[in-house]
Nucleic acid binder design. Structure first.
Lengths: 120, 120, 120, 120
DNA sequence: GTGGTCTAGACCACA
DNA sequence: GTGGTCTAGACCACC
């Protein structure tokens, strides 16, 4: 776990797992490590792991069964929907903030292209 | 001012002023409202305004003259630089979060194009 | 069986069977599936089925004969009583939660009528 | 606080506050007691109060400002919407469970009327 | 063994 | 003073 980030640890853990789910490393129905297990592995308090799992459940990325464990949601649609809605949220926010700074669509487009070109 | 946002109020105020400067509403050398004035207008604790002005000064957006008030920096380069750095900051953040969700460059490009098309 | 529900699995199984009995799908004296059988069918730990059957027996819904299996109670009164008590339980719960939300009797009545009208 | 209930304490606290909001005892924009304050009053751990406040914020009944406190949402529409959607949820659930037990619309209607008559 | 709740007590950022 | 996060450690219901 990267404690250097100023993000709360439970958010970092959520991102860790979201990425694994969305990228397919964790498939639907897969069992996540138990709270205590992950707690030991990441050297983080069990409550913090639990907090992360709870929030992930709230966002419908996972579901839990008492006494059984926590599992990746069976509903792949949910994953796709959440993924999509998070994406449009990010895009909307991005554009609105860019426009707030006084950029026009053309300029934004150009900057995005530039960023992508640099990436390759 | 949306006080229901999760962002600290002093950050929200900073963004408010930055946007005004970068978009040209506030020009170089213009006097900002006094701490007390803005405090009343936004119904916010003066300490909070003070904090926002301090941070803005640290970022060289504004400078203060004892007894005179706080002014937008005379240095237009600074403004342009900051505008650019804020933009690249937004872009970097946007891309890193999109990738965190598991999107590839192509997909992001497509979504951005789609958003721009819809705009017209 | 919706294992994503928050209810304990053994309760979900109890409700499953209760509903079958009360609705008449399982008649008095009918044999329930064996613990092992149901365990396989629902892909649930046998202990959990056992627990459900135990509780059902405690509530006099079923009785067990060593070596023979578990059977729906012969006593139709019991079934009718339980049906009635489950119903009043549901109603009580429903009203208490509606009132908890701040609705008055009249409003609740109106909403129920509305629901029934829509049904036809 | 009624510790006799088997509901988690933080849920009981949520219901307490929801009722106050929905019934109008707490008006929009009103400040809730601080976490520590309510903690003392109810003789409950501050974390438990915080949990309740967090969930209430997630359900958009309240919003919080760091360092300022927790407030009833300004948006009365939200309150009404949440109230309404919770109500239809309860009604749907109620009818589906009654039907599961084998009751017909007429019977349900009769039982509801009976309950209401008894109330007066 | 699993997750869920609760307490006690600490530290932090913010107003 | 306010809420937000984290740790440590306990107890419970469930599987």
């Amino acid at each position: 776990m990267n404690f250097e980030s100023n993000l709360p640890i439970y958010i970092q853990i959520m991102n860790l797992i979201k990425t694994k789910i969305v990228s397919g490393e964790l498939k639907r129905g897969d069992k996540l490590p138990s709270v205590r297990e992950l707690s030991k592995e990441l050297k983080v308090n069990p409550n913090t792991i639990q907090r992360a799992y709870q929030e992930l459940e709230r966002e419908e990325f996972v579901y839990t069964q008492r006494g059984m464990g926590t599992f990746v949601t069976e509903n792949t649609d949910t994953i796709q929907n959440v993924k999509k809605s998070m994406a449009t949220g990010l895009i909307d926010q991005f554009f609105s903030e860019m426009k707030n700074l006084g950029f026009k669509n053309d300029e934004i487009k150009e900057m995005v292209s530039h960023w992508l070109a640099k990436e390759e």
